[in-house]
Amino acid sequence: MGAQPENVIWEPSERWVRGTKGDVTVVDSRRPILVWEPGRPVPLYAFPEQDVRTDLLRKAARPPTGRHAGSTVFYDLEIDGEVTGNAAWSYPGDELAGYISFEWFGRDVLDHWYEEEAEIFVHPRDPHKRVDAIPSSRHVQVEINGTVVADTRAPVLLFETQLPTRYYIPREDIRFGLLTPTGLRTQCPYKGTATEYWSWAGPGDAAANVAWSYPDPLPAVREIKGLIAFYNEAVDIILDGERLERPVSPFSELFS
């Protein structure tokens, strides 16, 4: 592991990583590195220049400032006349000289990313992070505005490093008459695609999209398939008769 100026941390990865846009493979690397920038909770990939279609990159016409640990060299991506501004960048300093990283989280610069033959979403999976879905017999109740919307003794507890425990509840233990579907769809690199979300439909005001489900989760968390979880940050969880404090997490800003 090495250190860059401004506390950038990196380590090599042995995963085969590819990124594509349309029919074009822009990145194809068997020697990527994972980079952690200060203030970012998730890693990014960076790739040796030789593993990137640098012929598709141009010095950015309008490079941003103050992004990606002081990088001053940004690149636009041009494929078949279509230009994606500030799609990639290189880091300052000697240790990461010759590496290029691509925007990913929150921007669809490339259409698909793969580790080996598995497609990955949102951001690279952190090798120092665990996600464990464990069936339990604990008594879990969920209240919204003082009304019980879920009550189960057969939850699956999902433990994810640096995030609150999530309580996934069987559908038969949910009062769906108090919820309304919203059609929101999100992706997670560890759990897959959540294609079902619900908002509160009972008395009083409550935050939108407070509950979700993964109908077809990734194999590592198959125990949560079809179960319903609620944002602890926006509802009240009673665990074995004890009312839990609402946690503060990166998701809290969704409900502020």
Results as ranks from 00 to 15, higher is better:
residue 109 V to M: 05
residue 200 W to P: 02
residue 234 A to E: 01
residue 150 A to P: 00
residue 132 D to A: 08
residue 173 D to Q: 02
residue 139 H to M: 10
residue 14 E to Q: 15
residue 233 E to L: 14
residue 77 L to T: 00
residue 228 I to K: 02
residue 30 R to S: 13
residue 165 T to N: 01
residue 40 R to H: 12
residue 11 E to R: 15
residue 1 M to L: 04
residue 60 A to Y: 01
residue 187 Q to H: 00
residue 132 D to T: 08
residue 57 L to M: 10
residue 184 L to S: 14
residue 61 A to E: 03
residue 116 E to G: 04
residue 17 V to Y: 09
residue 127 P to E: 11
residue 154 A to Y: 07
residue 60 A to F: 02
residue 150 A to C: 05
residue 101 S to Y: 13
residue 124 P to Y: 06
residue 27 V to D: 07
residue 103 E to Q: 06
residue 10 W to L: 15
residue 26 V to K: 08
residue 235 V to R: 05
residue 155 P to Q: 05
residue 20 T to Y: 13
residue 40 R to D: 13
residue 114 Y to P: 14
residue 216 D to Y: 01
residue 167 Y to C: 13
residue 170 P to D: 02
residue 56 L to D: 07
residue 108 D to T: 12
residue 21 K to C: 05
residue 7 N to A: 09
residue 81 G to E: 04
residue 153 R to F: 13
residue 94 D to W: 04
residue 146 G to K: 05
residue 88 A to C: 11
residue 137 S to G: 11
residue 46 A to M: 08
residue 150 A to K: 02
residue 252 S to I: 08
residue 94 D to V: 06
residue 215 P to F: 00
residue 91 Y to L: 15
residue 182 T to L: 02
residue 62 R to W: 12
residue 94 D to S: 11
residue 190 Y to A: 10
residue 184 L to Q: 12
residue 83 V to F: 11
residue 234 A to D: 04
residue 244 L to I: 01
residue 176 F to P: 08
residue 236 D to P: 00
residue 172 E to S: 08
residue 233 E to R: 07
residue 187 Q to W: 03
residue 253 E to F: 05
residue 201 A to F: 09
residue 160 E to W: 06
residue 85 G to V: 08
residue 158 L to R: 01
residue 199 S to T: 02
residue 163 L to H: 11
residue 186 T to V: 07
residue 131 V to D: 02
residue 43 P to R: 11
residue 92 P to F: 15
residue 217 P to C: 00
residue 235 V to K: 07
